[in-house]
Design a protein around this nucleic acid. Structure first.
Length: 217
DNA sequence: CCCCAGGCCGCGC
DNA sequence: GCGCGGCATGGG
């Protein structure tokens, strides 16, 4: 018998197919840099708003860490305004750009950065750090987000702490970057379609196979 | 009108 | 260590 969360992953993969996350529009250099920007911009924000902010950055010619550091926080804020919390996020982008610049190169950053270093940057918490590590740096680190916490609770997993849930997912899934990426993306898709705050359990592919949750909070 | 979105920080307890 | 308010735009 495969672990429960691995079985859930397989069901979601069959249901929704390959997700191809993280979405990258191109135009930044390198593409992993755009992933890092998106990870910060999407904090508590719908992805369509992030796309607009990334598009504005591109049009303004702000495509690498140096460009960000050459742009004032106020101007940067106006450019990324569609992403919401734009003053905060402009600061966070600048803190992050400074950190990468101090590394010498983005390649060196990708190779050498670790979770604690990212968490020490103001404005980067666990989910943002892990998203950068998994999707930009290609490390086998599972990303926990609000959808994941909600799904886990409804699957009957009582652990609610970020690090505790991350350990459970990493224990039950094969340690593989592509599977971690895919699984996180599938959980988000499932969370948007079925496992919402107000769940749509009737059509959920996990119903009665892996999930006995029906209407309880 | 309401609620929500791929969080994080600073504060009080 | 946990709960809460602040931060903000754009869509349903």
């Amino acid at each position: 018998m495969l672990p429960k969360l691995y079985r859930v992953y397989k069901i979601l993969l069959r249901e929704f197919g390959h997700q191809g996350w993280w979405p990258v529009s191109g135009g930044f250099n390198p593409p992993e840099w755009e992933i890092c920007l998106g990870a910060i911009l999407t904090q508590a924000t719908a992805w369509r708003n992030v796309e607009q902010a990334l598009e504005n950055l591109k049009k303004a010619g702000i495509t690498d860490p140096t460009d960000i550091l050459c742009t004032s926080q106020q101007k940067l804020g106006q450019i990324i305004r569609p992403a919401g919390y734009y003053q905060q996020k402009a600061k966070r982008l600048r803190y992050f750009a400074k950190f990468v610049q101090d590394f010498g190169s983005f390649d060196a950053f990708k190779k050498c950065v670790d979770r604690d270093m990212l968490l020490a940057i103001h404005g980067i918490g666990k989910e943002t750090a892990d998203s950068i590590l998994l999707y930009a740096c290609k490390r086998p680190i599972f990303v926990i987000d609000a959808y994941t916490i909600r799904l886990a609770a409804r699957l009957g997993i009582s652990e609610k702490r970020y690090d505790g849930l991350q350990y459970i997912f990493q224990s039950q899934l094969p340690k593989d970057v592509d599977i971690y990426k895919e699984c996180h993306a599938l959980i988000v898709e499932h969370g948007k379609k079925f496992c919402r705050k107000k769940p749509q359990c009737e059509l959920c592919p996990l119903k009665s196979k892996e999930c006995t949750y029906t209407t309880k909070p």
